[in-house]
Structures are given as structure tokens and as C-alpha cells.
């Protein structure tokens, strides 16, 4: 399973690298110690950095949510026109459309590397929904927390890649 996970991460390495990059930025800002800052390790940490668990709910939530938000934003910037030309206009395969294909691959890589580590998601959930946190905090963080945990679960078994591929095929056929 780890081998499959690693191969998929290599195939979508732009997303893996940027995901780990944003994680490191968030750790730096939140003061979370980073143990190993290699982005493409050949294990289940590929696409993530090794760091200590966050101690505060805000930091834990930022660690789960900010990298996803930034990757999605970057994917929209990179892939909007390329995806429009390929999926919506249906341009033929020419030299110029190679740039669009690269853009779509980049966007796909970014979107399939949006999920946090399972441990980070669980830590975030336990901090946000601990007895110490207040009700407003729980309500405020709920949508993002649920999505983060769900995506982390999918990422754990590389299912997010299958979902992304299915979405691509559907977009090609239905649009």
C-alpha cells in the first residue's frame, strides 16, 4: 500500500511538493517544530513533512486547512483556462495544447494533494472538540474540520486519486 501511495505521489509530485511546502510554512508561522523537512520521502510521509503535533486548536486547524486552501487556489489559477480549453472547448491534440495538458496535470496534481495527514486531522479534531474549547469555536471549525478528516481518511488509502481520476473522466464525457 505504501508503494502504491508513493508511486501516486510521484505521479502527482507538483501537488505533493507544494502541499509539503505549505505545511512547512504553516509550521513555521505557528511555531510547530519540524523534525524532517524532506518533501518526497519514500514512505507514507511522502508529500508531507515530519513535525510535532500542534498544541493549540488554531494551529492544528491551520495545518490541516491552509495547505489545502492554497493548493486549490493554485490549481484554479493554473488549470482554469487549460481545463476549459480541453474539457469544455474540446481542443485537439496539437503542440499548443501540450501546455494545456501540462496545466491540467498540474491542477490535477494540486487537487489530489489537498488532504492533511491522518494524525494531524485526528489531532485537530481532538483539540477543537476537547472539553476546554468553547461552543463557538466548535461551530466555527466544524465544516472545515469535517472536510479535513474526510479527505485525510481518503488520502490514507490513496482513494482521493481514484476520485480525482473519476472526476476527470466524467468532465471529459459530460461537459
Amino acid at each position: 500500500m505504501t508503494t502504491v501511495y508513493y508511486i501516486l505521489k510521484l505521479l502527482t509530485f507538483p501537488g505533493a511538493v507544494t502541499r509539503a511546502f505549505w505545511e512547512q510554512v504553516v509550521c513555521r508561522i505557528s511555531g510547530i517544530p519540524v523534525e524532517d523537512s524532506r518533501y518526497l520521502q519514500m514512505n507514507e510521509m511522502c508529500g508531507h513533512i515530519e513535525h510535532m503535533l500542534a498544541e493549540k486548536p488554531r494551529g492544528a486547524f491551520a495545518l490541516c486547512y491552509v495547505p489545502r486552501f492554497m493548493n486549490v487556489l493554485l490549481a484554479l489559477i493554473v488549470g482554469s483556462f487549460s481545463a476549459t480549453r480541453i474539457f469544455y472547448l474540446g481542443v485537439s491534440l496539437t503542440l499548443l495544447s501540450m501546455i494545456d495538458i501540462a496545466g491540467v496535470w498540474f491542477a490535477f496534481s494540486l487537487l489530489t494533494n489537498c488532504s492533511p495527514m491522518w494524525e494531524d486531522a485526528l489531532n485537530m479534531w481532538s483539540l477543537v472538540y476537547s472539553k476546554k474549547s468553547n461552543i463557538f469555536q466548535k461551530i466555527f471549525y466544524f465544516p472545515g474540520a469535517v472536510v479535513s478528516v474526510a479527505w485525510a481518511f481518503l488520502d490514507k488509502y490513496s482513494r482521493h486519486f481514484l476520485i480525482g481520476a473519476a472526476v476527470l473522466v466524467y468532465a471529459w464525457i459530460a461537459v
Binding site: 510554512v25 509550521c27 513555521r28 517544530p33
Partner: peptide, 8 residues
């Protein structure tokens, strides 16, 4: 030191 790991 870990809190200030250089960003690659």
C-alpha cells in the same frame, strides 16, 4: 532550532 527549519 526545529521551529526555525529553513524552508526549501
Amino acid at each position: 532550532l526545529m521551529k526555525k527549519t529553513p524552508i526549501g
